[in-house]
């Protein structure tokens, strides 16, 4: 009995010694992007008691994977509402996973939105368009929340650019998204070009777009994609660029 009491006392002393170390380590881990999920009561209601206990016990990614597979079943059964709820839960459990944010946004803004628009059981086109827009907004929310959690993901910025360009026709917003994507560590070469294409589609930004596209064109033959040449030609016409400053005709072919 005495030994047990001494052992508990020693454990408490050990606890006091390690406490500052643990606080420091927890801060370091959080600033490095660990323990990013917020496990709260709404989440507990979404995933049930067992799932919540599992998530609390260090199996968040496993619970998220299981729910993602559930979401895939919901996709096969065309249950968009259920899918949206599951995506919400999965992204709450794994906020650092770019794939989950990207696929959630894409499913909502593309698949669910198209399905809503094509839903012929709804006779009113106005209502179908309204439903379509609601799914776009839902998809947009996934991308924006994902970017809040992962501001350094070039991939997510680029997918957000796709959404703004293809669904909202917000080319200026898309330009900024691609431009931001191109500055990130995981940037792909096409992000910079996509930013230029979007700028060329913004009314009133023709001069900047021309200079942007020309700077890419001047990088050399490997960068002279058909779309770059096409957009440059259009802008040369629009801006009345003198013939001697225009890109070579043969490059267009």
């Amino acid at each position: 009995m005495m030994r047990a009491a001494i052992a508990i006392l020693l454990l408490l002393i050990f606890g006091g010694v390690r406490l500052p170390l643990e606080i420091h380590l927890a801060q370091e881990q959080q600033s490095a992007g660990f323990h990013s999920a917020t496990l709260n009561l709404p989440l507990r209601e979404q995933i049930g008691q067992l799932g919540f206990v599992a998530a609390l016990s260090g199996f968040r990614s496993l619970v998220a994977a299981y729910l993602w597979i559930e979401a895939n079943s919901a996709f096969e059964n065309v249950e968009w509402g259920r899918m949206a709820g599951l995506f919400q839960t999965v992204t709450t459990l794994q906020p650092k996973s770019i794939l989950y944010w990207d696929m959630s946004g894409w499913h909502m803004a593309w698949n669910a939105a198209n399905n809503a628009y094509e839903d012929k059981s709804q006779a009113s086109e106005v209502l179908r368009m309204r439903a379509q827009r609601q799914y776009w907004n839902l998809g947009r929310k996934f991308y924006e929340d994902g970017l809040k959690a992962n501001p350094d993901s070039g991939e997510l910025w680029a997918r957000y650019g796709d959404l703004l360009s293809q669904k909202y026709e917000d080319h200026e917003g898309a330009f900024h998204a691609y431009e931001t994507a191109s500055t990130k560590n995981d940037a792909r070469p096409q992000y910079h070009r996509q930013a230029a294409y979007e700028l060329a589609a913004v009314p009133g930004k023709e001069r900047e777009a021309y200079q942007f596209l020309k700077s890419i064109y001047d990088l050399g033959p490997s960068q002279r994609m058909p779309s770059i040449i096409h957009d440059l030609k259009l802008l040369e016409e629009k801006l009345g660029i003198p013939p001697d400053q225009r890109i070579e005709k043969k490059a267009a072919h």
């Binding site: 508990i8 454990l11 408490l12 606890g15 006091g16 390690r18 406490l19 643990e22 420091h24 380590l25 927890a26 370091e28 881990q29 490095a32 992007g33 660990f34 323990h35 990013s36 999920a37 260090g58 968040r60 990614s61 794994q94 650092k96 996973s97 770019i98």
Partner: peptide, 30 residues
Amino acid sequence: ALLFPDLQAFSLTDEVVAGTAISLGLFLQT
């Protein structure tokens, strides 16, 4: 807090799977 171990400090795989890097310093401290 004083009596029980902080097992959360050793639950890093959720974020590792998502692509978060464990720096050498952080790994050594853990």
